[in-house]
Amino acid sequence: MPITNKMKIAYASVVLLIQVYLVYAATLYVTPWSAGFLCVLVAAAASAAGALYYIFVVARDNEIVAYNPQTFLEERRRIG
């Protein structure tokens, strides 16, 4: 299996990390716990959920599912 769950979790964690940092950076411009900041938080949560859903469900890597070495040898054999 080329794309292991470990890689997916790694990528997802990077995405979440960036989001957390952006929210922290937003605190410098938007006074915390004000209405605007709440919007930022909601946006962050929504996009985080969307990202996780996308990575683990939508972007099925079925097209890259296990590459069957037997067929690969088949192609090699055709160079007789």
């Binding site: 995405v15 989001q19 937003a26 411009y29 938007v30 930022v40 946006a43 929504a46 969307g50 990202a51």
Partner: peptide, 19 residues
């Protein structure tokens, strides 16, 4: 206000880009 919208925009855009 302006900045709140800006930052939520960046977060959503950034995530879509990463997806």
């Amino acid at each position: 206000d302006k900045f709140a919208y800006f930052w939520s925009l960046i977060i959503v855009g950034g995530t879509v880009f990463l997806m």
